[in-house]
């Protein structure tokens, strides 16, 4: 049974895109400790992405490499959730810019790491031994990411009027994007059929429990959702991914066979 490569790319692209996004805080963190924390979370995510891209390259064979996968695919070839490519602030018209908002950063890290502890936990039993080995490491890292994000979610939610309002706005903005977690893409369906992936739908009650428990402790409310479900994981992205990739890929593309 061949391992569905698109599914591995989905996991890898999630990690690299959020790792790149969070790395924007490097040198700009709200306090020194958080600057270091976000840089370390990014290192873990980029490390996970590298292991996954290496596994894909191994399966593809030929001249495939982790760098080609990360730096020489375009936005429509990326399979990450739309949630992870969004900028660190609330919704704006397309040409507007805004300051980075730490509440947005924390809420996104919380929503994603609450999912990934469950996904990595299940993937430890993947029929793909390479993926199972990556999952057994990543689960340990994701649970530290979850602790970190949850602590700040509670601290800001149950904090001042200003911090509460900002973190509630971030929850209202980002929660609808999590609907994408629960639709099954063709790549996920094939991977589940091959016993490579876990069925995310089955993880939903556990994710809801983690999210509702934290929101309650943080005195935050969970918005209802009716609307468009994003489809980043099948390659239909927001306008934000192209800018993120341009920054991440430009150096490698300017010096195609450069080594450093």
């Amino acid at each position: 049974m061949s391992t569905p490569i698109d599914y591995l790319l989905h996991l890898a692209d999630n990690a690299v895109v959020l790792g790149q996004r969070n790395a924007e805080w490097c040198g700009h963190g709200p306090i020194l400790e958080e600057d270091l924390a976000l840089a370390n979370v990014s290192l873990d995510l980029i490390g996970q992405a590298r292991l996954l891209y290496q596994r894909v390259a191994e399966l593809q064979g030929g001249d495939a490499t982790e760098d080609k996968l990360a730096y020489f695919r375009d936005a429509h070839e990326f399979r990450n959730y739309t949630l992870l490519e969004l900028p660190h602030h609330g919704p704006l018209v397309g040409y507007a810019a805004a300051d980075r908002d730490y509440a947005t950063t924390i809420v996104r890290n919380f929503l994603y790491s609450a999912l990934m502890v469950l996904v990595w936990d299940g993937l430890q039993n993947s029929s793909d031994a390479g993926l199972a080995a990556i999952a057994a490491k990543s689960i340990k890292e994701a649970s530290y990411h979850l602790h970190h994000a949850r602590d700040w979610l509670v601290r800001m939610g149950d904090g001042t009027d200003e911090s509460h309002a900002r973190v509630q706005a971030a929850v209202n903005h980002l929660m609808p994007y999590t609907e994408e977690f629960w639709t099954i893409s063709p790549a996920e369906g094939a991977a589940v059929a091959a016993h490579v992936a876990v069925d995310v739908w089955a993880l939903r009650p556990a994710w809801d429990a983690l999210v509702n428990d934290a929101l309650a402790e943080a005195t935050l409310s969970r918005p209802n959702f009716h609307g468009y479900v994003t489809e980043g994981k099948v390659g239909l992205h927001s306008e934000h991914l192209g800018f993120l990739l341009a920054e991440m890929q430009s150096l490698a593309r300017a010096h195609p066979d450069g080594r450093w």
């Binding site: 400790e33 958080e34 270091l36 924390a37 370390n40 979370v41 290192l43 873990d44 890292e141 530290y144 602790h147 970190h148 602590d151």
Partner: peptide
């Protein structure tokens, strides 16, 4: 605990 992440990912402050 001051921070879950110190000078490296493997250490807390």
């Amino acid at each position: 605990v001051t921070s879950q992440f110190g000078s490296t990912a493997c250490k807390a402050l």
